[in-house]
Design a binder for these strands. Structure first.
Length: 283
DNA sequence: CGTACACCCTGGCCGC
DNA sequence: TGCGGCCAGGGTGTAC
């Protein structure tokens, strides 16, 4: 479900509900999500105060006052919702996928729901969180100034596969997913099948600029609501209304004066949406 | 090391 | 209305 902007939206929604509060109870409704929960998962969290809810790439990080950090990945369909202390937890059709329920000291509840169960949770020592197996090999964040075309060029210049596939590699840039890669390549007018090593430094400068912009715009819009993604208040993001190419196969290219038609092709098992006219294969 | 692919799982949607 | 097939925002492990 979620790429970086959606994860950022979720983390921002959880922060005011959880930060500064102790976890009173953790109800785990099944032994595993994508992976088994770590030993004593609920016991390790119970009684801890949540210091900070943050994000790295597509991971949500809950820093705790016992020098541990809980890491949560939403996979394809994971989402968190919150209930205030005076709201009743009422099971409904979708609650069979409510896999973890955190109850805070003030009675508020944080509920993790994940139909496909591709998400997972783990716990690491806070001072080693960046070195944990999930985060150790991640590339720079696409937001802010962490990402530079020059350092990206050092990595892209030796890769022979398609640029679209490379951009989904979290070791190159952390947090991009299929939607925003398609959108950024369209804005940069780069064909997704172009060989990574064929991109010039100036093309990468353009691409980096558009990656940063599309991610920033999506964060401001509260993420994209595909399937039933919502923020922790159940409100929908609205960036999906701004997709130029993602999911737009058959539509005419939105670029000014372009007469092309958006097409969908499969690359490395994932859909690529692009305009074959204005996204050039020429260097 | 880079790349390609199968796989984990459920639900929604489309066509018949 | 039901059913099969296809599709889905991600990441890992394996084989080459």
């Amino acid at each position: 479900m979620p790429e970086l902007p959606e994860v950022e939206t979720v983390a921002k929604g959880l922060a005011p509900v959880m930060e500064g509060k102790r976890i009173q109870m953790v109800q785990v409704n099944r032994p595993n999500l994508r992976f088994a929960f770590p030993d004593g998962f609920a016991d390790q969290l119970r009684g801890c105060k949540v210091l900070r809810v943050g994000r790295r790439a597509k991971y949500i990080l809950f820093a705790l006052d016992n020098d541990q950090t809980m890491l949560s990945h939403l996979g394809m369909s994971g989402c968190y919702s919150t209930l205030a202390a005076n709201e009743v937890y009422a099971p409904h059709a979708k609650s069979k996928h409510d896999h973890v329920v955190f109850t805070l000291e003030d009675g508020a509840k944080v509920i993790y729901n994940d139909p496909r169960r591709f998400g997972f949770m783990d716990i690491f020592a806070s001072d080693q969180i960046d070195a944990c197996k999930f985060l150790a090999h991640l590339g720079p964040e696409p937001t802010g100034n962490a990402l530079s075309a020059k350092q990206l060029f050092a990595k892209t210049s030796v890769r022979k596969g398609a640029i679209k596939t490379a951009l989904l590699d979290q070791k190159l840039i952390a947090g991009l997913g299929n939607i925003y890669v398609c959108e950024a390549l369209f804005r940069a007018k780069i064909h997704p099948f172009l060989r990574t090593c064929d991109l010039s430094l100036s093309m990468l400068e353009t691409l980096v600029c558009h990656i940063r912009n599309v991610i920033d715009e999506a964060i401001k819009a509260g993420g994209s609501s595909l399937k039933d993604f919502s923020n922790t208040d159940g409100e929908l993001g609205y960036f999906q209304h701004q997709f130029a190419v993602y999911g737009q196969a058959g539509a005419s290219c939105p670029a000014p004066k372009c007469t092309g038609e958006i097409i969908r092709m499969v690359q490395a098992g994932r859909s690529s949406f692009f305009c074959p006219v204005c996204q050039t294969k020429e260097i």
